[in-house]
Computed example of a mutant assay.
Amino acid sequence: MKLPKPIQRGSSWRITVSFENKRYSATRDTAKECEHWAITKLADLKNGKVSEEKGIKTAYPFRELCDKYFQEHGRHLKSGRTILFKIKNVERIAPNLANKSIYEFKPADIVEWRNKRKKEVKVATLRNEHAIYSAIFTYAVKELFLLESNVWHSVSMPSKEKSRNQRITVDDQVELLKSLDWFGVTTPETPRQLVAWAFLFALETAMRQGEILAMRRADLREGFVHLPVTKNGEPRNVPLSKEAKRLLALLPAENDVLVPVGNHRLRMMWGRAKKRAGLSHINFHDSRHEAITRMVKVRKLPVEVLAKITGHKTIGILINTYYNPDAQDLVEMFNSSES
């Protein structure tokens, strides 16, 4: 059978093959990869047809399903980088499942994986991996029609760990800025100083690390910054305090991307800085917790307004996870309500 020619679409290539009046397509980075996929796909379809006639299902290793899921669906998602990491490392993360045929998966296999993995990683990581691998099986059920049900749904995961409530004190803030060699009064020039700037800006706005690094000058408006893309998939407008405006005024006017530092580099420099400062327990994301708590304490913002600023769709997550008042904060707010 003569193979169809791959078609270039932007920076990728797509090929479509037909077998018994059904069409199958794939997108790859090169034309040669498309042709290789087409040859393998047609061979699998033909072998599968013979096996079906004999009542035998051709083995379909989980790792192959993972690869197909990423190419056809996962890489287009906002969490694509995380999905790719879990797929590339599936033989290390789930050695008892990676090469097992998806038709042979049993709840006991997943229980075995869960119990072993629970000893290796935090609960949040385990739950994330379960969600990704379960989504891959759902894809096989609803998009590929290879399975009738998702066996991952039959196995429960450990409950979520208690949310972090790490606050950042003024002293912590000073030590971290000292470690990053910037104190918020001059134009940040080095990558390390830009990380310090991002940290202070996060404390003022409650913006996420990725949102700050993605800011462009065109996103700045009169009194707020417009975020066209956020974690929950919807745009958001974040009001700017006087301090946030002052910090923005310190940035070089020629910068289109306001903080030209990559996510990976920021994480590396932040990790080193907090160790130098003796504050290894503080994560950059704790600045979001601190900022939200300060907004309530200082600005007395009602929760529905706060949710619009922070981008939380679920009020419960905002209150129970990100608002972290200490006992003295509660006492002061309680007493101020009587005056």
Rank of each mutant, 00 (worst) to 15 (best):
H226Y: 15
Q209I: 03
F201D: 00
K22S: 05
N89E: 13
A202L: 06
K245W: 06
A94R: 01
V195I: 15
Y103R: 12
G262P: 01
Q193I: 04
H226N: 14
P252I: 08
S12D: 03
R299D: 12
A94K: 02
T82N: 06
I315D: 01
K313Y: 02
R208H: 07
K162A: 12
I56V: 14
V17C: 12
T205V: 05
W37Q: 03
G223A: 06
K160H: 09
V303I: 15
L301V: 14
K308F: 05
S51L: 15
L200D: 00
R276C: 03
S339C: 00
E243Y: 09
Q193N: 05
L84C: 03
R81P: 00
H264K: 11
R246L: 01
L258V: 10
P4F: 05
A131V: 10
A98K: 02
N128P: 00
K119G: 05
G80L: 01
E332Q: 14
S51N: 11
A38D: 00
E143W: 08
F199Q: 09
K2E: 07
I292A: 14
A26F: 02
A31R: 05
L248C: 07
E72H: 06
E304S: 14
A26C: 10
A31L: 03
A214N: 10
G311H: 02
T310L: 04
H226K: 13
A140T: 04
W152I: 06
R9T: 10
A135C: 08
M215S: 07
N283V: 08
K142W: 03
K116L: 11
L203M: 12
K100F: 06
K2N: 09
T321G: 05
L84V: 00
E64W: 09
H312A: 10
P107C: 01
K231G: 10
K122G: 09
S280G: 10
W37D: 03
F183I: 14
G316A: 12
Q193M: 05
H36G: 02
F334D: 08
P325C: 12
L318P: 04
Q173M: 12
N21R: 15
M207V: 05
I212Y: 00
L176G: 00
L200M: 13
E33K: 13
V296G: 13
H130Y: 07
K88A: 07
G233V: 06
V17S: 10
R265K: 15
E64H: 10
V259W: 00
P6Q: 09
S18C: 12
E35N: 10
L45Y: 07
Q193V: 01
E148F: 01
R192D: 11
L84S: 09
A140F: 02
A131K: 15
G184W: 02
